[in-house]
Amino acid sequence: MPRPKADFDDLRPLAFREPDEVLDADRMYTIYEVARLLQGVETDAELDVETENVLLDWAIPWMLKYADEFVFAEPENDAEPGHYGLATEE
């Protein structure tokens, strides 16, 4: 249910960090790892499903916003996620 803005004490602008501020140029990450890094969580942290879903809710639009700055590697098999990294000139 929508709430009035007056219900909130702290309203801030939505700001996205640049991909090179979050990811290492020489690494490839799963969407789950990207989601964790965006929130300052270790990539191997154990998270419950609900928390993981919230992190993904933030990561997916961020990756879409910066899609031109990413490369993608196919998963090794159907049970694995793909990997994403920064697009760099080689």
Score class of each variant (00 low, 15 high):
residue 46 E to M: 12
residue 37 L to F: 05
residue 23 L to S: 04
residue 3 R to Q: 11
residue 80 E to G: 06
residue 68 D to R: 11
residue 62 W to G: 06
residue 17 R to T: 02
residue 17 R to I: 01
residue 4 P to S: 15
residue 77 N to Q: 06
residue 54 V to W: 07
residue 39 Q to M: 08
residue 48 D to W: 10
residue 10 D to T: 13
residue 77 N to R: 11
residue 81 P to E: 07
residue 35 A to I: 00
residue 39 Q to S: 14
residue 34 V to R: 00
residue 79 A to H: 12
residue 50 E to M: 11
residue 88 T to L: 10
residue 43 T to H: 06
residue 6 A to E: 15
residue 16 F to W: 05
residue 30 T to S: 15
residue 16 F to G: 01
residue 15 A to T: 13
residue 24 D to E: 14
residue 5 K to I: 12
residue 89 E to R: 13
residue 15 A to G: 03
residue 44 D to W: 06
residue 16 F to S: 03
residue 12 R to T: 14
residue 60 I to M: 06
residue 19 P to E: 02
residue 25 A to I: 09
residue 87 A to Q: 10
residue 89 E to V: 12
residue 55 L to I: 02
residue 81 P to D: 07
residue 18 E to V: 01
residue 82 G to Y: 09
residue 41 V to S: 01
residue 70 F to T: 02
residue 80 E to Y: 08
residue 87 A to R: 15
residue 34 V to S: 02
residue 7 D to I: 06
residue 83 H to S: 13
residue 3 R to H: 08
residue 16 F to P: 03
residue 20 D to V: 05
residue 35 A to R: 00
residue 71 V to N: 00
residue 36 R to T: 03
residue 15 A to K: 13
residue 11 L to H: 12
residue 49 V to R: 15
residue 5 K to T: 11
residue 37 L to P: 02
residue 84 Y to W: 15
residue 50 E to V: 14
residue 68 D to E: 13
residue 54 V to E: 12
residue 36 R to N: 01
residue 36 R to P: 00
residue 16 F to D: 05
residue 73 A to P: 07
residue 51 T to R: 15
residue 27 R to C: 09
residue 72 F to P: 07
residue 35 A to K: 02
residue 39 Q to T: 05
residue 21 E to N: 05
residue 31 I to W: 00
residue 84 Y to H: 14
residue 72 F to A: 11
residue 17 R to K: 04
residue 88 T to A: 10
residue 27 R to W: 07
residue 58 W to Y: 13
residue 58 W to K: 09
residue 11 L to F: 10
residue 60 I to S: 01
residue 73 A to R: 15
residue 42 E to Y: 09
residue 83 H to P: 06
residue 84 Y to P: 07
residue 32 Y to P: 00
residue 34 V to C: 03
residue 28 M to A: 14
residue 49 V to A: 14
residue 80 E to S: 15
residue 33 E to K: 06
residue 10 D to Q: 12
residue 59 A to Y: 01
residue 58 W to Q: 09
residue 42 E to V: 11
residue 22 V to G: 02
residue 38 L to A: 00
residue 8 F to Q: 10
residue 3 R to A: 12
residue 28 M to I: 10
residue 20 D to N: 12
residue 63 M to W: 03
residue 73 A to Y: 08
residue 43 T to C: 08
residue 12 R to K: 15
residue 55 L to C: 00
residue 41 V to H: 05
residue 58 W to S: 05
residue 17 R to F: 01
residue 21 E to A: 07
residue 38 L to F: 01
residue 31 I to N: 06
residue 14 L to E: 09
residue 75 P to Y: 11
residue 30 T to Q: 04
residue 86 L to S: 07
residue 72 F to W: 14
residue 75 P to G: 14
residue 20 D to L: 05
residue 7 D to N: 13
residue 44 D to Y: 06
residue 65 K to T: 06
residue 78 D to S: 11
residue 1 M to R: 14
residue 41 V to M: 03
residue 43 T to Y: 03
residue 48 D to C: 13
residue 65 K to I: 01
residue 22 V to R: 02
residue 80 E to P: 04
residue 41 V to Q: 00
residue 67 A to D: 12
residue 70 F to I: 02
residue 46 E to G: 08
residue 71 V to H: 00
residue 29 Y to G: 00
residue 50 E to P: 04
residue 53 N to C: 04
residue 12 R to N: 10
residue 11 L to C: 13
residue 57 D to L: 04
residue 72 F to K: 09
residue 33 E to C: 03
residue 25 A to Q: 11
residue 18 E to Q: 13
residue 22 V to M: 00
residue 25 A to V: 12
residue 71 V to F: 01
residue 64 L to C: 09
